[in-house]
Design a protein around this nucleic acid. Sequence first.
DNA 1: AACTTACACAACCGCCGGAAC
DNA 2: AGTTCCGGCGGTTGTGTAAGT
Length: 333
Amino acid sequence: MGRSPCCDENGLKKGPWTQEEDEKLIEHIQKHGHGSWRALPKQAGLNRCGKSCRLRWTNYLRPDIKRGNFTPEEEETIINLHSLLGNKWSSIASNLPGRTDNEIKNYWNTHLRKKLLQMGIDPVTHRPRTDHLNVLAALPQLIAAANFNSLMNLNQNVQLDAATLAKAQILHNMIQVLSTNNNNIPCSSPLTMQTNNNIFGQSSYLENQSLFGQPQNFSHVLGANQDEKLMVENQMIDQPLDSFSSLMQMDVQDDHNSLPLLVAASPEEPKQSQMMIKNKDVRHDTSNPSSSNSSFTQDHHQPWCDTIDDEAGDSYWKEIIEQTCTEPWPFHE
DNA sequence: AACTTACACAACCGCCGGAAC
DNA sequence: AGTTCCGGCGGTTGTGTAAGT
């Protein structure tokens, strides 16, 4: 069965490499090649395990490594390849000369992943994020609620509870952000591709556009085997774009039974509601019956506050929440 | 200025598959 | 056939530094 990890041996140094160690390693490999990595440390006079030496060499010291910022073209390639290959960093790296899998992996996790999230794209599936769509699915309710509120204000002087108003405000801001993103990034996201072309269409990265608008064909990276290429391409093309399109088709009437409950709003509620949004604490506010009454906790709708809680770490959500607390109420103009 | 927090990235860890013995 | 070696891979952690309070 398995062997014991080479680094189990006691006394071997770990952690950051010193310049002296780097020089020893480089000098040894330049003279003798790396040969057996396991034997290398002794031969080179390094108090490291072979694996550590190999990683240091392949990820940092190798002379053909390209250092510095990733170019937009490299970013584009990474995103496109990731949409095809997933976290196959070594495969992705083999298409980016001078870049290591480790570097690409780090860059993905620290930059590109966030970038996609901010564009409203799930970095795993490379599709529009469904958590956004869950909130979008509440659109008919919010519109109906807003209309109802206007009526009640006119005729009976009754207000919707503050939590419901806050939901609508968040939705309003979210739509603004989404539309801003789409306008700023022409042909840049699957979402844009779907809405620009045909929402039910079968466009894919493989077929036509890349994430940044340049036509690319990455089928060559999928292996020499033609069957494999075909299989992957078919898979990409056949995958239905269900979640987004079905939500966009949603009939307002389907939800007529799920209008938010209306409760009498006390004068304090608007303040409370704002505070709760800021503190991301709505879900746990069990002491406030109106907040639970007015939540969107229907069978098929994730509560909006859950959605916010889940993503509140993103600057994207922070932006939305901030706007929610500062912008004027849209339905009372 | 001191402290805390967030971020970027180098390095490590554990696992796997293939080759050698 | 079973064991060990070796290199590779992807996920995770640790550390240094910049930014914020």
